[in-house]
Amino acid sequence: MSADPDRLKERTAEAVRRGRDATIDLSHRIHARPELGHEEVEASRWLAEALTEQGYEVEAGVCDLPTAFRARIGSGSLDVGLMAEYDALPGIGHACGHNMIASAAYATARALAPLADELDLTVTVLGTPAEEVLSRGGKIMMLERGAFEGVQLALMIHPSPYEHPAPQTLAATTLDVAMTGRAAHASAAPQEGVNAADALTVAQVAIGLLRQHLRPDVRVSGITRSAGEAPNIIPDRARAEYVVRATTLDDLAEVRSRAEACFQGGALATGCRVELGSGIGPYAELRQDPDLAASYRENATAAGREFAPDEAVARFLASTDAGNVSHVIPTLHPFIGLDTLPVVNHQADFAAACATPAADDALLAGAALLAATVVDAATRPELRARLIGAGRS
C-alpha cells in the first residue's frame, strides 16, 4: 500500500470522533434495554440499522439465529471481521459492558467503510449473540455454520477494570446436573424418600474439597436451579448448573472429569440417579495473534493509553466464545480499561460504570485503536500476506 499509514490512522480517528454522538447514543440505548442471550432483538436491530446507514449490506438472522447478523462493505482481498456482542446478564443488565462492545464495533466499522477500496478491504461486522450463555455461545454456532467464512482476522474490544492489549482467558465448559430420587412425606415417612437435594449437597461438598487440589488457574463455580418444592416433601428432583474452567481445552477435559465424579459420588451416596449434560461445546482459551497485539500496543501507547501490569491481568481470568474463533482465525481481543477497581465485571456497579462519560470515552478510544490496527494489517506487507494466508476459507 502506497498510502501513508499515519495519515490513514488520522482519518479513521477523525471518523470515530465525527460519529461520537451516534456511537454513544447506540451504547446508551443498548445499556438502557438489556436483553439476555439469544433474545437481543432490539440491540441487534439497532446495530444493523446503524450499519445500514453507513452503507453496509446487512443479512439478519444468519446461521438460523434470529438475533445474529452479518454486515459487509467493500470487496477487497483482506477481509476484516469485527465482532459485536450485545447480550446482557440476568438481573444485573450490562454488567460486562456488551453495550460498549457493540458500539465500538459500529464505530470501527463506520471509520473503516470510507477506506475499504483504498486499503483493498472487505469489512465484515458479525453480530454475535449470547456470549454470556456458556452452553449456547453464539460465536461457536456461527463459526460452525459458516458465518466467519472468508474472514481473515477477527477483532473486538472488551471493557474491564484493566487496560491490556492481549489478555488471556480460560477454556470453559458447562455441566447441567439433574439428580433424581424419590419423593415422600418428610415427617410421616422420610425413610421412604430418596433426597435429590442431599445428593447435590454431597456433590457440592466434594467439589469444595476438590478445590484445594486444583491448580490456581482452574475454576469450578455453579448454582442450584431447583431443589424441591415444599419443606414437608422429600425432594425427588434437583438441578444445578456448573461451569468448569481451565487454561486449555486439554486441561479442561481432565478437570471436567473430576467435577463429574463429584456429582456421581453425590448420587451414589444418596441412592439417586444423576444425569450430566452440557451445551453445544466448550469455550476455547483465547489465542491472541502476536502481531495484531503488538500493533495494538504500539497504537495505544502512541495514543497515551497506559496498561496494567501483566501479573495483575493474569489473575483476571474469564472465558469467551471468541476463543473458539481465535483457534481458527487470527484474533485480537484487547481490554479497554475503565479504572473501576475494586468494582469488576459482573457486578451491578460495573453495569452502571458502562454508561458513564468515562465509558463513552473508552469505547471511542477502543474503536479508534481497532481501526488503527486494521490500517497496520492492511499496509504492512508481511502481516497482510500472513493474514490472507491464514484466514478461514
Results as ranks from 00 to 15, higher is better:
275 E>N: 11
168 Q>D: 15
154 A>Q: 06
289 D>A: 04
67 T>N: 07
247 T>H: 13
318 A>W: 15
11 R>P: 09
87 D>F: 04
259 A>L: 11
293 A>W: 07
274 V>K: 06
279 G>T: 03
134 L>F: 15
214 L>C: 10
49 E>F: 07
92 I>W: 01
161 P>Y: 03
33 R>N: 15
36 L>Y: 04
87 D>P: 04
343 V>P: 06
242 Y>S: 00
55 G>H: 05
390 A>W: 05
314 A>L: 07
349 D>C: 06
306 E>T: 15
222 G>Y: 04
243 V>T: 15
350 F>G: 06
317 L>I: 03
281 G>A: 10
189 A>V: 11
230 A>T: 09
131 E>G: 08
24 I>C: 10
320 T>Y: 02
80 V>Q: 06
257 S>Y: 10
53 E>T: 12
67 T>D: 02
176 D>E: 14
44 S>K: 09
291 D>Q: 14
277 G>R: 05
58 V>C: 10
251 D>S: 09
354 C>R: 07
46 W>R: 14
282 P>F: 06
14 E>I: 08
121 L>I: 09
335 F>G: 04
111 A>Y: 03
156 M>W: 02
300 A>E: 00
319 S>T: 09
344 V>S: 13
91 G>T: 09
374 V>P: 01
208 G>H: 13
19 G>Q: 05
105 A>I: 07
292 L>S: 01
136 R>E: 15
287 R>F: 11
334 P>S: 02
138 G>D: 00
315 R>N: 13
56 Y>E: 03
217 D>Y: 02
200 L>C: 00
17 R>N: 10
174 T>H: 09
24 I>G: 07
205 V>Q: 14
278 S>L: 12
279 G>P: 08
228 G>A: 03
2 S>F: 13
322 A>K: 06
303 A>T: 04
367 A>H: 08
29 R>T: 08
231 P>F: 04
172 A>S: 12
350 F>H: 02
95 A>Q: 08
243 V>S: 10
314 A>V: 00
169 T>L: 11
266 G>L: 00
249 L>V: 09
285 E>W: 05
38 H>D: 09
359 A>W: 06
6 D>M: 13
162 Y>P: 08
109 A>G: 12
256 R>I: 10
41 V>N: 14
193 G>L: 04
307 F>R: 00
361 D>F: 04
369 L>V: 06
281 G>L: 11
63 C>H: 09
326 S>D: 00
338 L>H: 01
279 G>M: 02
384 R>S: 01
347 Q>S: 12
191 Q>I: 13
235 P>E: 03
345 N>T: 11
11 R>K: 12
64 D>Y: 12
87 D>G: 06
17 R>A: 15
360 D>N: 11
185 H>N: 03
95 A>E: 08
1 M>L: 13
95 A>C: 00
373 T>W: 02
356 T>H: 06
77 S>Q: 13
281 G>P: 02
166 A>S: 12
362 A>S: 03
387 L>G: 01
149 E>S: 13
152 Q>A: 05
32 A>S: 14
44 S>G: 07
333 H>M: 00
317 L>Q: 13
365 A>G: 14
